[in-house]
């Protein structure tokens, strides 16, 4: 990432912790309030016109969600990830559907899977993947999917688990097992 651009963003939007992964990819962090102004600026002024994806990482240990907006600039040939931390308890975030209509779909998914709300985003409460889900959103890390599955579905007894590598050696290639 162009260091001048970073300095600019640092001054005007309070961007921090630049992390350069390689020539074509870097990440920056920004406060929740400045996120949407920053993204608007990047899209309209700095040629980051493409929203590659928008997702959430559940940092349960820190008690926060990290929202990751991945932008791409064709003219710079550069991917820029913008990381925004929000509290796990206050799960409201400004919507960006006015910048990219496709963001609606991402926001619908994130509402369903993490319970993060994006007020005013169209169709936010429509079903995305799940139908009639009750209880806590399944992608949150405190949701115990194994236990849920055991409680909800009927287990068939007699399930065995083998270490695939070991099993293959013993059963399928016994003669070669020593040489591995």
């Amino acid at each position: 990432m162009n260091i001048e651009l970073y300095k600019n963003l640092e001054n005007s939007f309070g961007v921090t912790s630049l992390e350069v992964k390689n020539r074509n990819q870097s990440y920056i962090r920004v406060k929740k309030e400045m996120a949407v102004p920053l993204i608007t600026h990047l899209k309209l002024v700095e040629s980051y016109k493409h929203l590659s994806f928008f997702t959430i990482i559940d940092q349960i240990e820190k008690g926060e969600f990290e929202l990751l907006y991945m932008l791409h600039s064709y003219s710079r040939n550069h991917d820029l990830g913008i990381i925004v931390s929000i509290e796990r308890h206050e799960t409201d975030m400004e919507s960006i559907h006015h910048l990219w209509p496709a963001a609606e779909t991402y926001q619908r998914e994130l509402r369903e899977m993490f319970g993060v709300e994006f007020p005013d985003s169209p169709g936010l409460y429509e079903n995305f993947c799940l139908e009639g889900w009750e209880g806590i959103p399944p992608m949150r890390r405190e949701f115990d999917t194994k236990r849920y599955s055991e409680d909800t579905f009927y287990k068939r007894p007699g399930r065995e688990t083998n270490d695939p590598a070991k099993y293959m050696k013993e059963k399928i290639y016994p003669s070669e097992a020593e040489t591995w």
């Binding site: 399944p138 999917t145 194994k146 849920y148 599955s149 055991e150 579905f153 009927y154 287990k155 399930r159």
Partner: peptide
């Protein structure tokens, strides 16, 4: 088998 969204035994 441990997915929240996949049924385990079809015959039920």
């Amino acid at each position: 088998y441990d997915s929240y969204n996949t049924v385990n035994r079809l015959d039920h």
